[in-house]
């Protein structure tokens, strides 16, 4: 798949950056003329992944979150969110709906379910003590000719 455009964003794991990062990705994706619904779905999925870096990966510490967003051919959006935090022990279990390691903090355990249902593809790789990478891909229904001119 051809990469038509790309952006990179590195932010410290501050809670205040949740809003900034999803808005930045939404602004980048806007050039493909997505529907309001598609933009909302992408923003929500990004918010889930970034929040997980802040509250789980770098729990009680501070670290960088690396975000890459790409526009691929055929109106596909690729988003990669990476941390160098604590890692996930059992990815299969973590992805199950309602599973959370911090119920005491009013976590619903729905972050991965939301990413899965709002994006077309969700890939999670992780190593204990090394960090976690989340890759999400979504095909936009509205066909834009922005890169065909």
């Amino acid at each position: 798949m051809k990469i038509l455009n790309e952006m990179k964003l590195t932010i410290p794991s501050k809670s205040q950056n949740e809003g900034f990062s999803r808005t930045a990705i939404a602004a980048f994706v806007a050039q493909l003329d997505p529907t309001v619904q598609e933009i909302s779905e992408i923003k929500t999925a990004v918010s889930e992944a970034v929040t997980n870096c802040i509250v789980h990966a770098y729990k009680n510490t501070m670290g960088n979150i690396d975000i890459v967003a790409r526009i691929l051919s055929e109106n596909k959006i690729y988003i990669r969110i990476k941390d160098k935090g604590c890692g996930i022990e059992d990815i299969k279990q973590a992805r199950e709906a309602l599973f959370t390691t911090s119920p005491d903090e009013e976590r619903a355990g729905l972050g991965f379910s939301v990413m899965e249902s709002f994006m077309d593809t969700l890939r999670v790789t992780s190593r204990i003590g090394k960090g976690t990478t989340v890759v999400m891909i979504k095909s936009l229904k509205t066909k834009s000719d922005f890169y065909e001119k």
């Binding site: 929500t44 918010s47 889930e48 929040t51 976590r107 729905l110």
Partner: peptide, 12 residues
């Protein structure tokens, strides 16, 4: 805008 934190808020 709302994400799963809103669900946590409701359940709480």
């Amino acid at each position: 805008f709302m994400d799963s934190a809103g669900i946590g808020l409701i359940i709480g």
